[in-house]
Design a protein around this nucleic acid. Sequence first.
RNA 1: CAGGGGACGUCAGGCGAUCGCGGCGCUUCGGCGCUGAGGAAAGUCCGCCCUCCACAGGGCAGCGGUGCCGGCUAACGGCCGGGCGGGGCAACCCGACAGACAGUGCAACAGAGAAGUGUAUUGCCGUGGGGCAACCUGCGGCGAGGGUGAAACGGUGGUGUAAAAGACCACCAGCGGCGCUGGUAACAGCAUCGGCUUGGCAAACCUCACCGGGAGCAAGGCAAACAGACGCAUUGGGGCGGCCCGUCCCGCAAAAAGCGUCGGGUAUGCUGCAUGACGCGCAGAGUAAUCUGCGUGCUAGAGAGAUGAUCGUCCGUGUGGGCUUCGGCCUGCACACAGAAGGCGGCUUAUCGACCCCCCUGGGCG
RNA 2: GGCGACGUGGCCAAGUGGCAAGGCAAAGCUCUGCAAAAGCUUGAUCACCAGUUCGAAUCUGGUCGUCGCCU
Length: 116
Amino acid sequence: MLPRDLRLSRPDDYARVKREGRNYTSRLFVLGIAPNTVGHNRYGFIASKRLGGAVERNRARRVMRACVQALHPTLRPGYDVTVICRQGILSQSTLAMIPELARLLRQAGLVEDASS
RNA sequence: CAGGGGACGUCAGGCGAUCGCGGCGCUUCGGCGCUGAGGAAAGUCCGCCCUCCACAGGGCAGCGGUGCCGGCUAACGGCCGGGCGGGGCAACCCGACAGACAGUGCAACAGAGAAGUGUAUUGCCGUGGGGCAACCUGCGGCGAGGGUGAAACGGUGGUGUAAAAGACCACCAGCGGCGCUGGUAACAGCAUCGGCUUGGCAAACCUCACCGGGAGCAAGGCAAACAGACGCAUUGGGGCGGCCCGUCCCGCAAAAAGCGUCGGGUAUGCUGCAUGACGCGCAGAGUAAUCUGCGUGCUAGAGAGAUGAUCGUCCGUGUGGGCUUCGGCCUGCACACAGAAGGCGGCUUAUCGACCCCCCUGGGCG
RNA sequence: GGCGACGUGGCCAAGUGGCAAGGCAAAGCUCUGCAAAAGCUUGAUCACCAGUUCGAAUCUGGUCGUCGCCU
């Protein structure tokens, strides 16, 4: 799913989302969303050092990517999205996270009305 | 059988399905094929390769490191073998293991005295004085006994004496010198002599021997972008991160180039970036570390960072529940430490466990 | 990824081999009708684990944590 085109790569991109975007928070995630001009969505994933070592942080990012992969076809294009995980994500199963992330995206208005 | 030790150790769940990710190759641009984390990838504690500082030279000072002997290695603070010391009944394990008669220094408190051929209002002995006595006190000798301390200036027995003492003697321990034997050496054994004892701390300064130029892949190179000001010069200026030698660069008409200071700007692309002191197998040399030869293999290369998600099945261990004909069966859960970022050799630290081989001690049976 | 510095009561900190200063804060007591101020008292695994030493916050090695720098 996420080839390189669909990922945020520059530090400036993350800073722009943090500065201009809107935030949506749940128990496991913090979403930052800002419109972009590239015509499709781009995603970035943040796992802080509070989660643990490199194994835990890489694991958290992979799980977040798997969730976004499942939801990406239903989303409205043209936005930069950052997903920040909070503590406790490593003890949750992936299948339980997808509805929670979908609820946040719907709250942000990114879910296509037709497909939902 | 129980407990324990060693080791070159080996492994780190296996197989399969669907949806996906990085790299390489092919492509009819739909896709297809191959391949994709570790023993520690970790900590960054050592040693190198590599890159830049022109070359990376010598000496002095300083700083840092290493420190029994021999060997291995590209090198090492690593490894192997040996010696010495310590621990264990043993197999075996552990050791920053040079020098304290080159010098300087340190030892709180307690204690008479803490290293100085030093030590006295505890004590022992002789003797004088006072007192009925217990006892008090002057002088002299002593360092054995008691006591303090982490540590008190050899031990035992005897001679000796008023009482004592290496004051003297015998044996023992320890120190030093010379010699012989074994060993490449560290060292060990033996013999002899000496003064009779000269302690501890060098992970205190230090001495001796040896080693080390500095910085690091965000090194460095190419391209792109941005692009100013000032200063520097003939018995000159600057570099080689201290000094000297030596050597190099620039300049000696100007300009350019160079160097320095300040300011501005910048994480954009490519490269460095993976065939190497490489892995595996066999044979040989060596006690071993290791080396040599032959054959064979190519084995991650990202750039906010690729291994994930959902399942099936099998095996092992632990644990909960149910059934049981006590052999087991069914089912649920859990199953280590941990993720490459230039590469390599080590060390250290983390780690649920499983397996192979060798050895020691104790018990039982034959 | 690389390089470097630092961990001492709740906070700021001195101490560099010999019973761990000081200030702020906190609690208790004195003083007061009550408070404030003042005075007195109380409190430390010296980040952790080993080693050297008679003796370690200090010296040495390792572990953990925090912070800074790189063009």
